[in-house]
Structure formats: structure tokens, C-alpha cells
Design a protein around this nucleic acid. Sequence first.
DNA 1: CCCCTTAAGCAGGAACCCTTCATAAGGGTT
DNA 2: AACCCTTATGAAGGGTTCCTGCTTAAGGGG
Lengths: 407, 407
Amino acid sequence: MKGQALIGGDPAVLRRLNLEAVLRALRGREPMTTSQISKASSLSRQTVDQVLDDLARLGWVEEVAPGKSIGRPARRYRFRADAGHVLGIDVGTHSVLLILADLDGKLIETRRAVLDGEPTREERLTTIRDAAAGLLAVHPASRLRALCVGVPGIVDGAGRVRLSTPLPEWNGLDLAAEASGWFGCPAFAENDANLAALAEHWRGAAQGTDDFIQLLTGHRTGAALVLGGRLHRGRTGAAGEIAGLAILGWDGSDLADLRGEADTAQVFAAAADGDPAAVERVDRFARTYAQGTAAMVLTVNPDLVVISGGISVAGEILADPMRRYLGRLCLDAPEVRASELGVETVALGAVRLALDHVDRHLFDFRSAPESQPVDRAGAEPAAAPSAPSDERPLNQDVFELRRAATA
Amino acid sequence: MKGQALIGGDPAVLRRLNLEAVLRALRGREPMTTSQISKASSLSRQTVDQVLDDLARLGWVEEVAPGKSIGRPARRYRFRADAGHVLGIDVGTHSVLLILADLDGKLIETRRAVLDGEPTREERLTTIRDAAAGLLAVHPASRLRALCVGVPGIVDGAGRVRLSTPLPEWNGLDLAAEASGWFGCPAFAENDANLAALAEHWRGAAQGTDDFIQLLTGHRTGAALVLGGRLHRGRTGAAGEIAGLAILGWDGSDLADLRGEADTAQVFAAAADGDPAAVERVDRFARTYAQGTAAMVLTVNPDLVVISGGISVAGEILADPMRRYLGRLCLDAPEVRASELGVETVALGAVRLALDHVDRHLFDFRSAPESQPVDRAGAEPAAAPSAPSDERPLNQDVFELRRAATA
DNA sequence: CCCCTTAAGCAGGAACCCTTCATAAGGGTT
DNA sequence: AACCCTTATGAAGGGTTCCTGCTTAAGGGG
């Protein structure tokens, strides 16, 4: 039914499976001893030992000093989060935010680049690329495994910019293909609201929730959907564009009234102090806001609605009336939370998306023909033991390692 | 991240993987020779031979007469679609439709049972169970592997009836648990609109489309969502209940006007003949209908909207104005098609859901801890070679077969 | 009746995993 | 300091699975 490959396995597939199992056990946790991994993966200690040996030579794991314990000290291994880096990029109209992170998602370094005036398509690209190159130059030992660029506008599944009002010069640009030529690593492009949703799911208000709606309201309002734990983009990446339905009022004055960022915060502050006029304005905003939201909530019946973007400064002042109105409009109202992630949200989501790609590649023992971006892997870096090559299946690497060892 | 088991593999896992690969190659196709399977699965002919031997002894495949060809005639094998049956049940207010199908989804037999008056909870259950038992009695050799019951109303993920207006006596009933006690096979319960969507995806207007909205309009209007090729139920199974938003008009008179089934067909016929009053009524209906649909379309941005239920008799007479209005309301309007499946739609979807369970069990080489229903498998049927046991992993069966052979 | 073509069957070899037993390396105790 | 206890490490043996190469079998066509 799906594009599931029919291929069944050599014994090598088994090995690959076990490489993955061990890696998965080690990933994101404290260093573990061989025996602990053996228990966790239900493999024999012997096998784990051999697998760890391979992984160590490939550079994916590393031995650390043994811990204190009774009996003979056990060797401990940790996942080498520094075996690769990923880059998340948030492109705004006048500035660009870049985050470099390791494979555990720990932020290594953040950088901001500014763009004055009205840059051309190429100028914008070059500025971003140069900023990224500068950031990478500070960490020369690292190997970039994936990057993701967030764009305000509609981006299709292949990473082409379909329609961006804030960045008109990028309309029609095949951004993913462009960026994958930069550093010889897979590159992705994605709508910024979608990335914000990924960030909330990862480290924000939507942790542990697999079905939620992410509202993003700044100068205009968009929404992103996470369903079944996965981003739902829709046919052309336009899922969540409910503002298109005039009757729901999302383009009406009730919303515009509160969307100028300068004024907004003051109104919310006044409402918090109990100023009747401000309370009334917020309430009217919430009623309209809830109406459009209800249409989406009734459609997908999510667990949660996250309010983010410039409007999220309101916090409970807005979330509270939203709860009230949604409770009236929906048979089965979801939770409502305001985002607490800051300006780094979108870039953080881009990091997550890049990491997802790395994970998919690491942990899908079938050759994973799924949605790989244009991949000009460039020259092989001579397979130094400390620099795992990226776009080949694990078992192939092991195979070549063996050959080299026996020669 | 997901509940992915960490288990890595014995050599037995490899075997299981290859059993599945061969089964998958054979499934739903014409009989194949060993060499053909070898090519399709990229396993060696030798291995395929051995695997086929196991599968034959387990009753999953069968040798058929060799075809005409040059050279030594090759033995040919086919998937034994009759190695098990599934049952799909559509429960209505006054009647119940049952379909028995084989593992290829071929319909074996259909039966209808009627229910007069206002049966109690138990009476309705008993009537259905007896009808099913009668149907199964006609095919004593078959082994029932799963069944699914479709219910008009909200059904949660565990198969409990949350809220059913047409079947009030079933409110709160744990239908899946109830039905899984009937024949010692896994049983599922699901909302009828959801099942209709599965049917359309399988053999109806939505073939080949992985993101679509299924509208179901009879006496009332509901909707089902298929996203990413999978049913999206929502938190409490209430996804698609857009009628709850009054402003969209789905509870208003424009729709009620056309929903009495007796009258409806006449109006559509008159509109097809060009009667201005009828055309006007259909157009007004379509406008309101499109408005509620647009809210969902803008939310999920699907490829297709399927119109089904009593209203689908309209065909193009309704689909056409729907296209027009959706085109105005949506930035990115999807295709619109009227269902052409008949009264068996829901029962057919129930068959599909039951088959999905069988497939998942057959083809997921990990022990598949996912969403298994209450499973009182009952007494083991002494493992006759022609009656594969169902709720155990394939490789365990093979193992026991080996043991018996060497003893 | 012989030749050609294709399939089936039978070793031989390699990769992988598991179990078992002996050995090593610490800490605590006498 | 020597001994014991605990736990980890290392090597050997056995079993399963898969692949490759070779020989044998079974048809059809000249």
C-alpha cells in the first residue's frame, strides 16, 4: 500500500538493526555500561560489545571514564552528540537568526544577521549563506549533517517557496535545492508557523501532545497543525489558512484592532489592571479569534491549542477568554496555552526538523527512500574514524571498515 | 520518541522479515514462481524456496499448477486469501448489514438483518451476533481473523460508543470489548462516516488520494478525515463535527430544506431538468454546504472532497456548484467528487478496517504492541497445518513447526 | 531422439547471534 | 598485605540464517 520496500534481509540487515537498537538506547541518555545496554536492548552482552566497537570506530559513540561501583569497573559509552551538527535558520524580513546545535539538540551557538533595504533574491541568499559559513567556521571540527530554513509564507513539500508576502523576491525559489548546495548536506525549507509548532512540540507548551493546533498571530494570522505527532502540511502546504474564510472574521476589524505590535502589549497590560475598555477590547478580540479557531478545532478535534507569535505576550489575559469562548463553541473544547518560547522559536523548530531528518536516516533500517532532498554529498572526507560519513547506510560503513581492517 | 521497541534481532527476526517480504510480494497478485518472487524481493531463490516451504506448511500460501513456459516448468505459489476471513458490520437504526470477505478483500457473502421497534441494548447485540454466527456457519472451514462494527455516532479510540443519537441505548457501551467475545477474534468499533471514508479510499472516489475529506449527509451531516493515508479521529473521535459551529449554517434551514430523503431526489431530478426553482434550491444548499466545507478545507488543505450519504444521489448536480463555491472560498480548492459506492459503503469500510488489522499484524515484524483490542483468543485450535493461528508472530509459528518436525 | 532453456536440489562458505566458561579488575574485609 | 566478593571482559563452541556455485531434473522445439 505504501512505498514500503519489499527487500528482505541479508544477515547484514540484522547487524544494521542492532546498530540502531544500541544507538537508540544510548541516545539522549547518560552514558551506559555494556550490560545496561544489553538489558535495555535485549541483545546479548557479547553482541552489544561488538556493535559498540563498530559504532566507536565509526565515531558515533565514545568510551568515557568508568563510574564508581562495586566489582570490576564497567566500561561506559556515550552517544557522541558532537559527531554532527545541524543548523536551524529563521529568515525574517530584516534579519536572520541562525542556531547551531549538536545531535542531542543542545544549542551550540546563536548568530543574528541583518538585512537592510530591499535585497534581491541573490543578496538575501548570499547574506544567509555567509552568516552560516561564519558560524560553522568557529567550529571547524564539526560536520554539518542537515540544515533547515524557515520562511514566512507557503512552502511546498519539496521545499520550494510558493508564496511569501514578506519576502516577495523569493516567490518561486527552490530554496531547499539552493541551500543543499551550500555545505554539501541535506537542506530543507519549511513554513515558519510549522516550525514554531515543531518547537512547541519539542520543548514548549505542546510537549507530550501529539494532536494540537498552533496559532501564530503577529501582523497576520496563520496556523499550523500537528496531527498524530507529525506536521500536517496539506496538499500545497496551505493547511491552517483559515483566515481565507471571510465569514469567520479573521480579516475583520476586531482582529486588526489588536495586531499593531506597539499598541497590543499596552492593551493587554491595561486589561490585566482591570481597565474596562481594555478588557472589552480583549474580549471582543478573543471572541472573533475563538470563532476561527473553533472551525479548526471542530475539524480536527485536537488536544490543545497553542497561542504564539507577537500576540503571545498576552499570556493568560488572552488564553482565559479563549477558553471560555471555545468552551461555548465546541462540543469538546481542547486545552489552551500561550507559548512561552521566545524569539528563537522558529529557528529552534528548524533545528528540530533537521534533527528529525538525521534521526530518520539513522534509525530507519530500510534504505529509507522517503522524501530525501537534493543531495549533493560532495567529496567523501576520506572516512576518518572520527568523522562518520553521513548519507550512507550504517551497515555499508561497517562493511568498508571491516575491509580496511582485514587488508 | 514513539513507542518503538528497542529490541534488536535474533537471526529469527531476519527470518520473520523475509517471511513478510515474500508474503507481501505475493499478496493481491497473480500466482508467482519462485524466481519471480526472488527478483521482486531481492532475496536469493534458495531462501525464497525455504520461506515458501514454511509459509505453505503454515497455510499462508499454496502451490498451484505450473503455467506454460519454455524450459522446466516452475512451481507457482499463490497467497491463500481463504486462509482467513474478516467481517464488516454496518449497524443502522432498523437494520444491520454484514459482509464476509476473504483476506484479499473479495466479498464472500452479504447478509441483512432487521430490527423492529425499539430494541434494548442486549437485544440489538444479540440480533447482530446471531446474524453473524449464521453467516459464519455457512462457511465452516474459514477462520475469522477480525471483525469491525460501524456505528452512527461518536466512537472513541478504544471502541467505546461515546454518543449515538440514532442508537441511544448503546451510549456508553464498550462495543469492541463486547464483540471481541463473540468469536474469539479481535474486534473493533468505529464511527460510520470514518468507515465510509476508508471504503472510498479503498475502492471508491478517493483511490490513490491520501488526504481527503469525506462528507456524509443524510438526516444530519458529519465528516471524516483521511490525512496522510490514515484516518484522523481526533481526541475523542469527534473530528469533522463542524456542524457545531452555528455561524457556518450547517444546522440552518438551507440544509434542512434538502435533507428529507424522500423529497431530495425529486428536487435534484427537477434541477437536472432545468426547473428554475429547483436549481435555485440546490444552489442555495450548495452555498451553505460549501461554507462549512470550506472551513475544513482551509484547515487541512486536502486533495479531494467526497460527497456521500443520502445526498450523493445528486452526483454532478450538487458537485458542480460545490466546486464553484469552494473555488471562490478557498485559495486552493480541492477536487470534488460524489460517491458512487452504494448502500454497502459503511460495511465495506468495516471490512477494510478489519483487513488493516490483519495486515498490520502480518507485516509488522516488531511485536507490534500498538493498539491491540481486547483479545480473548480462546482455545488454540491444535495448529492444524491448514489453519494458521492468528494472534502470534509468524516466527513463533515457524519455530513450533520446526520443533514438531524434528521430534 | 537430441538439444536448448529454465527450474530445482545439494553442498560449501560466510555473517551473525547466543551460551558457557575461564579470566581480569576493582573494592571491602580480615 | 592477602583474601574474598562482585562484576566485567574475553575466547570458544554451537546454531541459525543467508548467499553462491555446481549438478541434476523436466519440459518444448527442431
